[in-house]
Nucleic acid binder design. Structure first.
Lengths: 130, 130
DNA sequence: CTCTATAACGATAATAATTATCGTTGTTGA
DNA sequence: TCAACAACGATAATTATTATCGTTATAGAG
């Protein structure tokens, strides 16, 4: 494990790729999109940097969809919708934020809650129509 | 894909195993526990029956923890706590149920929400102490 | 009770996402 | 300019899960 971090153009491109889209891409998707710009990019490099960015808190995991882990460049707590049909991962905005309950859980169970995930599942508009 | 379902003692044992514990076991854990009773049980049989039971709605997936999918025999909507340290999956009861928002999402986005998952992450009591 | 159709099984091979290895390349600071 | 070492590409290894296939168990008909 390196003690010092060096700058890397590939890592910049990977985090930019994850931040620029709302699609919550997988490692494979990031790899596919960046191959145009970096023809000899390695999939291992994408996985390695995703792990680094996650350790640094630059990205978070939304969860696994169809066997692939999906990532989000927006790290603030917000819910997602996952289409069981096509695998789309979509941000949802609710009229009011769902109550936290973190303090209640810490008090009642003696845990230290650090974050949470709220995911709704079902069929997206496209999959309902087709 | 079979059209008729036959009774199976192994399948009975698998669903009983998942229902009898609050640990939200993985396929591997179910396999380990049932080998005492069925010495030549195959791991493939566990995976096959978990897939069947999930199709029938007898069990649900809590999500992936440390690369393994974890299952719950209680299919009603309730939140879970996952320890990032030891991987424990624990039911939590909240003073009031978190608001659903399903109707609001359906109305605003045109989706058909069928279910949701609410998971809190952090450190459990044991991992805080040790 | 016996027979037949076929669901379920065990053993094992195959798949697919992810992680590790290792020799080479790129970055940084002296 | 150079040395130290982080990051890389290529690829092998790992790991959870799924598929295959010949055998066994279940259930309904006769």
């Amino acid at each position: 494990m390196p003690t010092l971090r060096k700058h890397s153009r590939k890592r910049d491109a990977i985090i930019a790729c994850i931040r620029e889209t709302k699609a919550h891409p997988s490692a494979e998707t990031v790899y596919s999109r960046l191959r145009a710009e970096f023809p000899k990019l390695s999939l291992g490099t994408v996985y390695r940097n995703i792990a680094l960015l996650r350790e640094e808190g630059e990205i978070v995991s939304v969860g696994f969809v169809g066997g692939e882990e999906r990532f989000d460049g927006v790290t603030s707590d917000h819910p997602h919708f996952v289409c069981d049909c096509c695998g789309a991962v979509i941000d949802v905005e609710l009229s009011g934020p769902p109550r936290g309950f973190e303090d209640e859980i810490n008090r009642n169970y003696g845990f230290e809650v650090s974050h949470r995930k709220l995911i709704y599942f079902g069929k997206c508009t496209d999959c309902i129509e087709h």
